Amino acid sequence: MTAIRPLNRVRVLQKQGCSEVNSYSMHWPHLFPQHGPGKKHQRAIVLAGWQEEIVAEHPGLFARGLIHSDGYRGTNRVRRPVGGEDKWYEYPRYLFKNESADILRLCGETLDRLGVAWRHNKPDEISVARRDAVARLDRFVGPKY
């Protein structure tokens, strides 16, 4: 942040499991054009050219950020009636939920880049549930604190 805005103060606060970094400037919106007034699902969310280059170079880190901000990794428990009695099975999966079609598209494109199989299980949600896809995404995402 200091390299981009050398005259602005940067504050770092140590928190449990992370560091919070703050810097205030009227110019941040110029550097992050997807931010703006109104609800994000009602306006276009498009990466600037320099942001696309970074995402193309580091898709795993982008996926990690998406999952840590609007995603979930948990265990799905399923009940199926078999021969008159209920059978249960469970498996790990990722869910990514967002009202913005643009953000969902960015997530899907990033998962494609990483070779992670995914699908829309709801119009506003992406599911990664295949065993090999979950294992592959685990390599990039890591634990969420």
Rank of each mutant, 00 (worst) to 15 (best):
V12S: 07
D132I: 08
E109L: 09
G36Q: 00
P29V: 11
R131W: 11
L104N: 00
R139D: 14
E109A: 13
T2S: 12
T110V: 03
D112R: 15
E90S: 07
Q51I: 06
V134E: 09
P33I: 15
V116L: 04
M1L: 05
I4W: 10
S19N: 08
R79H: 11
R9D: 13
G84S: 10
L61N: 03
H58R: 11
Q34W: 08
L114S: 01
P92G: 00
D124A: 15
T2I: 12
R113H: 00
V12L: 15
S25T: 08
R77S: 02
E125P: 04
G108L: 02
V46D: 00
N76V: 15
P92I: 07
M26A: 13
E99M: 08
P33M: 14
K39L: 14
N121K: 03
R9I: 03
M1K: 05
L47P: 00
D112L: 14
H27F: 14
T75P: 03
F62R: 10
N98F: 08
V128W: 14
G49D: 09
R119M: 08
V134D: 05
L106M: 02
A56T: 10
S23G: 05
K122L: 11
K15S: 02
S25I: 07
F140Q: 02
M1W: 06
F62T: 04
Y89V: 00
R139F: 12
Q16S: 09
A56D: 14
P37K: 14
L13D: 12
Q51D: 03
G65F: 06
Y24E: 13
Q42N: 10
A133R: 11
P92K: 10
R5D: 12
L31D: 02
S23H: 12
W88V: 12
Q16E: 14
S100Q: 07
Y145A: 10
E99A: 12
R105I: 01
R113C: 06
V12M: 02
K97P: 00
G83V: 03
G36N: 01
F140V: 07
I103E: 08
D70E: 15
L137Q: 04
Q16I: 12
G65Y: 04
G74Q: 00
N8V: 06
D138V: 09
K144H: 06
G65C: 07
H120R: 15
A63T: 04
